[in-house]
Design a protein around this nucleic acid. Structure first.
Lengths: 218, 218
DNA sequence: TTTTCCTAGAATTTCGAAATTTTGCAACTT
DNA sequence: AAGTTGCAAAATTTCGAAATTCTAGGAAAA
């Protein structure tokens, strides 16, 4: 693994998990010092991240973290629903027992964490664990879809979705709803009911969607 | 527009339109000479293209054009159908008269070219024109969907789809079917029938999809 | 007071070359 | 003949600095 790949992964993770504020400028010069490498290396990495939409590039004005916007979160959510619903339906058709086992395992892990979160007084130590378990569950849903293109596209969208949420969603006041949602998705998937599974995936993410007037104005 | 952006666009276009062979190595050093710039500039551009999937990057082994594969074309086509069907349905709901006008115009232009292609003895002068008109038509379909994320994602997938086709699809022996398909998509869209439009978009692209055993083995 | 202009400092873009790694090819061994 | 080893050429990766462009803030003008 080259140093550049290292920097890329480090920055990608940081951009997805609160390491920068929305709209903040990402100064190549500062990062160069922090990582102790040359300007070109940082620049390459930032360009790659901009192709993924995790930072925005403007000619002669460097890179900055995208602003948070209700509309952007809506669009990303809509795309997640589209990709996850389709990918999961394909997994149901083609995944077989191996996929069902993986999905059950991923749900068990997530469910365990969510239970503990409900009773924990300090949620901080769980934040990273929960984010990873949630991602793992949703990736497992589509893991047997058979299309690398779909999986890679979903991954891109998911990163930007996470980035849009960042801070505010860390209070976990939504957790009891989430537990129910995840359970319903699992049940629907295991029963082999494609239409129901699609519906449950939509319901789970619906709180990030705009409706009616709010969407018109966005 | 910076020089780098120039190089990026030039190479992206070349990768989509036959400028390199499948699996061919893309030598940064050669491109550096051709474009008369430094190695870093080329490297940055190739990294950005790799994030889009138009070239593959392997540690210490440079960049190469992805191999052509029936399975990859299938996956990309499947994604196109998913995105275009959804985007067009959204356009039907939200696009209004302005969208219908744009779509009619795009279809007219494409249709005109396709007619001439049918009777032309030498199709070469039309190749670029037709590719652009076809892209324009499909982009117009989703142009009123209201989601930048969907449009950008579709654009990425479309570029890779084009790249997979490259050479062989330039004989235009499929053109009379295509004329019918495009007309049917237009008619369905203008009639406001979402389900029918989705179906026609699927049918149009179906010749690139694998079925049954071929898919299992891929 | 508000606006415009200017300048010093900071950030960016691009470059060319040094350091490292791979690759092609010939000589050598089995 | 087939496979291995070693060397030279070519390609890649990383660097540090020069050239260019932006930005903030004070001075001058309206």
């Amino acid at each position: 693994m080259s140093y550049e790949t290292d920097v890329f992964e480090t920055l990608r993770y940081r951009l997805m998990t609160n390491g920068f504020g929305h709209g903040e400028k990402v100064r190549a010069e500062h990062l160069r010092q922090e990582f102790g490498c040359s300007a070109s290396t940082i620049r390459e990495v930032l360009f790659r991240l901009s192709t993924l939409g995790l930072v925005e590039f403007r000619e002669q004005r460097g890179f900055r973290v995208p602003e948070k916007s209700r509309k952007m979160l809506h669009d990303l959510t809509h795309m997640r629903v589209l990709l996850e619903a389709e990918g999961t339906a394909m997994s149901i058709r083609q995944g077989g027992v191996a996929w069902e086992a993986r999905l059950t395992a991923a749900h068990h892990q997530l469910s365990h964490l969510e239970m503990r979160l409900q009773t924990a007084s300090d949620t901080d130590p769980f934040v990273d664990l929960w984010f990873n378990a949630e991602r793992q569950f949703h990736e497992t849903l589509i893991s047997a879809c058979g299309s690398d293109v779909l999986r890679a596209t979903h991954h891109q969208i998911y990163c930007r979705f996470r980035q849009q949420l960042m801070v505010e969603d860390r209070q976990f006041d939504f957790i009891s709803n989430n537990i129910r949602h995840h359970q319903q998705i699992l049940d629907a998937a295991m029963s082999g009911d494609e239409a129901l599974t699609r519906q449950k995936i939509h319901d789970h993410l619906a709180r990030h969607l705009l409706t009616g007037d709010a969407l018109e104005l966005a």
